[in-house]
């Protein structure tokens, strides 16, 4: 990747060229699913699952177990990482149904800590900051539309009253706004998926076949 990846023919068969071949063949295996399900697709899929599991295990092992636990404790003499280390080990009690309840303490610690971290942050970034920004003078059509969309969409998700009368009308407007949003999201997703196809096609036609230079 580092060098100028200009197509240089099939020979000499360098490690880089070998990697391109592996990538190209696996890409074709996966795309064969577009025709119908088949063993080539299954092979490539299982390979992907296995390889990524191995990759993640390695990264996690190095970053967490080695980097955060073993090195600080054994080399640095810091003892605090032992606490989460022990909590992590408790998770293995799940393999023994009689002691499985112990693992709940580790989960409780994790969920509690994470909720404490996340709830105020989400509340601030997603609710307070947005409410603060929404309180702007409504002097233009855009601002008015934004306000109507915001309030009506919120009303659509209000469950404590029947959606009749004014509330029903407002929530119907809300759903229209939501649908426009979903439409935009759909369009963006089409672009994203097509981008992936373009990337793969560029790989096949340029790096593998060398048809475009």
């Amino acid at each position: 990747m580092n060098e100028v990846s200009l197509w240089t023919g099939f020979w000499p068969f360098t490690p880089e060229r070998f990697a391109i071949w592996v990538g190209a063949i696996l890409t074709l295996c996966i795309y064969s699913f577009l025709y119908r399900d088949n063993p080539f697709y299954k092979f490539a899929e299982h390979l992907l699952v296995g390889v990524s599991a191995g990759y993640w295990a390695l990264i996690y092992w190095n970053a967490n177990i080695v980097g955060q636990l073993l090195v600080p404790v054994l080399r640095g003499g810091v003892l605090l990482p032992l606490v989460p280390g022990v909590l992590g080990l408790l998770m293995f009690t799940r393999f023994f149904p009689r002691f499985a309840w112990i693992s709940r303490y580790a989960i409780a610690f994790y969920v509690g800590g994470y909720a404490g971290l996340a709830i105020p942050s989400y509340m601030q970034a997603r609710v307070l900051a947005q409410v603060h920004a929404a309180m702007a003078p409504t002097v233009s059509i855009t601002a008015a539309l934004l306000l109507i969309g915001l309030i009506c969409s919120l009303l659509y998700f209000f469950f404590s009253r029947e959606h009749k009368g004014v509330l029903g009308g407002a929530s119907r407007i809300g759903i229209w706004f939501l649908m426009v949003g979903f439409g935009a999201s759909f369009g963006y997703t089409v672009m994203a998926r097509v981008s992936l196809l373009i990337g793969r096609m560029q790989f096949l036609f340029r790096d593998w076949l060398g048809l475009i230079r």
Partner: peptide
């Protein structure tokens, strides 16, 4: 961000929580 997610981040632009946004290949 990817184009799939781009729409979810627009609210952060108006409030200045993010200074700008690159959405997908575009």
């Amino acid at each position: 961000v990817t184009a799939v997610q781009a729409l979810n981040f627009y609210p952060y632009l108006d409030t200045g929580q993010a200074i700008g946004l690159l959405g997908g290949m575009k």
